[in-house]
Design a protein around this nucleic acid. Structure first.
Lengths: 126, 126
DNA sequence: AAAGTGTATGAATTCCTTTAGTACAGTCAG
DNA sequence: CTGACTGTACTAAAGGAATTCATACACTTT
């Protein structure tokens, strides 16, 4: 389900967070579906439950997760209109588009890329 | 020229790197123009020359800078076709576009944003 | 009651950033 | 050539921030 890369400089909780987010965005985990428990996933990845908890908390902040104490964590639709995650993505989108244009790419080229990216379900977290 | 924000969690060398990159991308520093020397900029910002050097090295890796030992550092066109920076930006662009589409934005909406972003010269580093 | 769930807290460790000092090799004006 | 400038390399140290862990608590369900 999720692969940890200890050679990577990125902290484990980020790898878990991005991996889980990808599973939700790609539809591998449907909306409302329950995610593995903190301890179960921790045991599965052979890491501390707290590290998983941190990833879950971050995803809940982004709106991709809804945690219910005592019950479990369930996948959600994702950030709404004015969510933090949406704002972050828009800034990232604008900044990269702007610089890519400076590097010679035309808005038309980039627009075509969007279509292509929208279809593809692959790709890893930002 | 560049403002450091010590309250910001971002490390100084990143602020310097992003600030300088923005100066090049926005055209404030023209192609071929010489940048302040490592020691001069360090003194100007009241920080260690090593920190500036780190920012310069990063920018050279991105293709926005060309360092000539003994002569100085000069602004460059930016990443070429297959540069590391270009690849990084494309991944960032694709990932954000993909997730924004998942969140409900249409490719058309995003395409319009590109036009808007291409004109604007503002914005801070990613 | 028992086993599961998410959550809070504090400590330890590890990593990163920054600084400082020193040194080397190159360029250029005098 | 001399001297002042340039970028670069290296080590060491200090400080702080971030990551990870162990433990305990509150809740839900069976």
């Amino acid at each position: 389900m999720i692969r940890l890369n200890y050679r990577d400089a990125r902290p484990i909780y980020e790898q878990v967070r991005d991996g889980l987010r990808h599973l939700v965005v790609s539809g591998a985990i449907a909306e409302g579906e329950r995610l593995p428990s903190v301890r179960a996933l921790a045991a599965s990845l052979a890491i501390n439950p707290n590290t998983i908890q941190r990833a879950y908390a971050a995803l809940e902040g982004e709106g991709y997760l809804l945690s219910e104490p005592g019950r479990g964590a369930f996948a959600a639709k994702g950030g709404g209109e004015g969510s933090r995650r949406r704002g972050e993505l828009l800034r990232q989108f604008d900044a990269s588009a702007r610089e890519l244009c400076f590097l010679g790419m035309t808005p038309t080229e980039l627009a075509e890329r969007i279509e292509q990216a929208a279809e593809t379900k692959g790709g890893e977290g930002a």
